[in-house]
Every structure is written in C-alpha cells, then in structure tokens.
C-alpha cells in the first residue's frame, strides 16, 4: 500500500488513490521533480530507473552506501547528500518529493509533513510488493516507462529462476527450508518466502512474518535445508560456526552440508536482491538434485 500527501493533513486513503493514479497536488510535473529518498528500497529503485532520474535525486537514505543493506552501495555519486535523522537536512535541500517508509520515524514524518510532498511506501514483503513499489515510484517521479522496463526484466528473471527448479517425481514434495538467524525465522509472506518458493523450496514456517523461534522449535521442524546470514563474517566461517551451536549442529541439514549461507544484503533485500537470493538458494538445490540423479543412475537396478 502506498500513500502520498502534501499539506497539513496526514496521509489518507484518498491521497493513496491519487498516488496510485499518478496524480498529485504539486505544481511540479512528476518528470521534473527533485526527489529525495529516506528508504533503501527507494535508493535502489531510483538507481534502477536510469540516468534521467539519477539527475533529479537530491538526497539518499543514510544506509544507501551500507553494503549490508543496500544493493547499490557506493554507486550513487558522493555529491548526492545522504540524509540523516535530522529533518532539517531534508528541508534544506527542498526536494519536490521525498520517499519514506511506513516504518520511518513518526517524528521525522511529522516534522516534514506539510513542508514537502511525501510518498509513503508500505509493503516490503515479497515480489508483489516490489512490483507495486516500483510502479508507484515510477509514477511519482514521471518514469513510468523506465519502471515498466525494470519490471519486465524482473519478471523475466523470476520466470527464468522458476523454470530452473529441479523437477519433482509424482507425489514428491518440495524440499523444506528455513531461514533462521539470531533466533528469528523468516515466515510466510516474507521476501525469503517468495525467493524460496521461486527457487523450488517450501518454507517450513506456517505463520506470516518474521517469527521469534528458538533452537528447540527449529529442531522439531527439522528443515531439510537451512539458510543463515553470513553477517560480518566470511560465509564459510558462519557455516562452520554451526558445528559449535548446541542442538543446531544435530540438524540433518547441518550434518549433511545442506546449509546455505547468504551474504548481506540479499537476505534482507526487498528489492531486486530478492532474485539474487533466489538464485543463491537455487544453485545448491540444483547441484544436489543433479548429484542425486547421478547417484540414481549409477546405482544397480
């Protein structure tokens, strides 16, 4: 869901509708707007929309260059200001539009409300939300065509990943997978869920959202594949550390090397990084399936 607003009021459903239609109350044409971003996804999408849009971006989120979160780290020119938590920084550059997230500080949003047009992105839970956010930003910055091209490329890549899923025998279920780190499990309706589904897995989670799940619970579910984030470590170190983790080390996925370690920022990406994640999940699954097929061929009938 997206809301757009300018003036004294808060974002209302009617304004959201007007944003959906690509209209706004501002006098500056969408294709001429100077845009500021306060959310990493917008940093990434504005970059994806191409050079014409780049020239109109006057501010970026504070994490735009943090490779742990941003897929466009250090790609934006240094001269473009990175906006901190102080709303004065944003007001000083006086953009025509600022893109924020629904989870952005309420105080920050209140401080800029009525002084600059605000586009609020609300929905970061998978491929459909990505498509919706892309379209909304494309319309808001007058780059609908470029957004359409990005979407086409995205959909084509999804289709390619889905086409590469290992084939299943009749009645055979997809292998189960869990993404678990710092005691949290990526549940249904998350970016991980969509990426795992595209890659050919079935998420062990039965509830939506990011769920606090302790090691005992994970062991009782016994996923066939386990996904972890590498964090600040090298990925092989992160995998090796599981051998020391009480209980977790007894999981079949860990004992049999079916652990997929994902580098930042892909595990947390709500942008095109989700597809990178899907591809990284799929690669070992395909390798395992091929190995299994070879073993079947070699075994005496």
């Amino acid at each position: 869901m997206v809301a757009i607003g300018c003036g004294g009021g808060s974002n209302s459903p009617s304004k959201a509708e007007s944003a959906g239609g690509g209209k706004s109350s501002t006098t500056v044409a969408a294709s001429e707007r100077r845009v500021a971003s306060r959310v990493v996804l917008a940093d990434e999408l504005l970059w994806a929309l191409g050079p014409e849009v780049h020239g109109r971006v006057v501010g970026l989120s504070p994490m735009a260059d943090d490779a742990r979160y941003s897929a466009v780290a250090e790609q934006w020119p240094e001269a473009t200001p990175r906006l901190g938590r102080n709303p004065e920084e944003l007001l000083a550059i006086a953009p025509d539009l600022v893109i924020v997230a629904s989870f952005s500080d309420a105080e920050y949003r209140a401080a800029i409300d009525g002084k600059v047009e605000v586009l609020v992105l609300d929905g970061f839970d998978g491929f459909d939300d990505f498509r919706a956010n892309l379209q909304t930003i494309g319309e808001a910055v007058g780059a609908v065509e470029a957004a359409g091209e990005v979407r086409e490329a995205f959909d084509a890549r999804v289709a390619k990943i889905e086409a590469r899923r290992p084939s299943l025998a009749e009645g055979e279920a997809r292998p189960t997978i869990a993404s678990w780190q710092s005691g949290y499990l990526a549940g249904l309706d998350t970016t991980f869920d969509d990426a795992a589904e595209a890659a050919g897995f079935r998420n062990v989670a039965t509830k939506a959202g990011h769920l606090r799940v302790d090691a005992e619970q994970l062991l009782s579910w016994a996923p066939e594949w386990l996904v972890i984030g590498c964090g600040e470590r090298a990925c092989d170190e992160a995998v090796a550390a599981l051998d020391e983790a009480p209980g977790i080390r007894t999981l079949e996925a860990v004992r049999e090397g079916r652990v997929i370690a994902i580098e930042a920022p892909y595990l947390g990406s709500v942008g095109e990084g989700m597809l990178e994640l899907a591809e990284r999940l799929q690669a070992p699954l395909r390798a395992s399936a091929q190995q299994g097929a070879k073993a079947d061929e070699a075994s005496p009938r």
Partner: peptide
C-alpha cells in the same frame, strides 16, 4: 533418536 538428542539433551537439559 537424533531429534530427541538435539532437543532434550543438547538444548533443554543444559
């Protein structure tokens, strides 16, 4: 059983 070992012995008892 490995599951019982992991849950009861490696995690819950300690």
């Amino acid at each position: 059983d490995r599951r019982a070992h992991g849950i009861l012995w490696e995690l819950r008892l300690p």
